[in-house]
Design a binder for these strands. Structure first.
Lengths: 217, 217
DNA sequence: TAGATTGTTAATCGATTAACAATC
DNA sequence: TAGATTGTTAATCGATTAACAATC
């Protein structure tokens, strides 16, 4: 279980949520092909992922849902949970905060940061907002290793530098600009413009194909 | 230029925005290693991407920024642009709409949909909101091939079905649940919970390594 | 020319899938 | 047993990178 493929990590996160739903519906066992159908992937891939995390069952009645959830938790979750900060609490920051609140108990959003005096020291979407000037202090006091970056594009570079300097270990970058971090800081780029342009590209391809039944006219 | 790798498409989208910035700063030519540094990738990868899109330069003073931007536009953009709908105009939907407005002129958000009577027929984040009941009618009238799905998780499955039925060709799924679409519909899953759990996982790994300088203590 | 740069093939790496043995 | 299912190796596919020829 040393080093799991990145794609497997992603799928485990998705599997877990599906499995939690199954459990809520009273389903205690699930076949690999059932998991596969729910995610539009193949049963082989599901079985391989499950093999990689070291789970196996002697029964032929599918996997034990509870056991799988627990095992995925052992892999993904930190034992004491992990604190998260939202940096930049504008439209997007607020939406994401609201979106996460209470969802994943092991990942707690414990602070927001902004430069707007109107927001500082207030509770926004259930999270206390601090001044960007107190970044380092709060991050240390509250032991926050993960930051969600939702500042305006022009601030992304400087703020991410400040985050790294303040001891942040992982950044989830929602801004549409690339940020630079040292190699010991985990960086995940989550570029919404790219994802939309990508869909648009493939849609364009399809529309082009279909012998002129085209929106492009 | 038949079929470009998916990863190349993603990078082209990012390159273009960087190149537009360069142009705004008056930079007319750019080396492959400059592009690479801005994106934390290798110059070889940049050159290969550029090779794949069929651009090349005889000069040794870098690529012509304007020409590259135009060429990327030819590949990614539809000649007449592409209309986009935001389906579910809650926190996240509004944030995304505000985020996109005016950014990419070739991808226009032309309609929002919701079930909340308070929202229907009002203009929200600059976009007219329609009833979810009028999905098919508006999508056809306005010729909207792409939908951004930001409804609450429990509605995702049904609404995506309705979108497909209404003739949508591409869905950008921001909900944290998998949706099922026929193979001729482009689907891009954009799971925020997964991306955060992924960062948390890799941060956990790092913290575990560093001989007990750990937040988990 | 020497150095910097581009363009491109071949090798490598990582992820998915095909094939199939094993088991209930 | 036959059929369904799991577990796992090997083959394949896709993406990145190494290596290097060509050019200014």
């Amino acid at each position: 279980m040393k080093s799991l493929p990145e794609k497997t990590i992603e799928r485990l996160s998705v599997y877990r949520r599906t499995l939690l739903n199954c459990l809520a519906e009273g389903k205690e066992y699930i076949y690999s092909h059932e998991i596969a159908n729910l995610h539009n992937i193949t049963a082989v891939q599901v079985r391989r992922d499950i093999m990689l995390i070291g789970y196996s069952t002697t029964l032929k009645k599918g996997y034990n849902v509870r056991a799988l959830i627990e095992l995925i938790g052992d892999i993904l979750d930190s034992p004491r949970g992990l604190n998260v900060a939202v940096v930049g609490i504008g439209n997007l920051g607020r939406a994401i905060t609201a979106y996460f609140r209470g969802k994943r108990s092991r990942l707690q959003i414990v602070a927001a940061f902004d430069t707007d005096p109107e927001k500082i020291n207030r509770v926004i979407s259930g999270v206390k907002c601090y001044s960007m000037n107190d970044l380092q202090q709060i991050i240390n006091e509250k032991q926050i290793p993960v930051a969600i970056l939702t500042v305006p594009p022009d601030y992304a570079a400087k703020v991410s530098e400040a985050l790294v300097y303040s001891g942040i270990k992982g950044i989830l970058n929602y801004t549409s600009v690339p940020v630079n971090v040292p190699s010991d800081v985990v960086l995940e780029n989550y570029d919404m413009i790219t994802s939309l342009e990508k869909v648009a590209y493939y849609v364009k391809q399809k529309l082009g194909d279909n012998s002129k039944v085209s929106y492009e006219e």
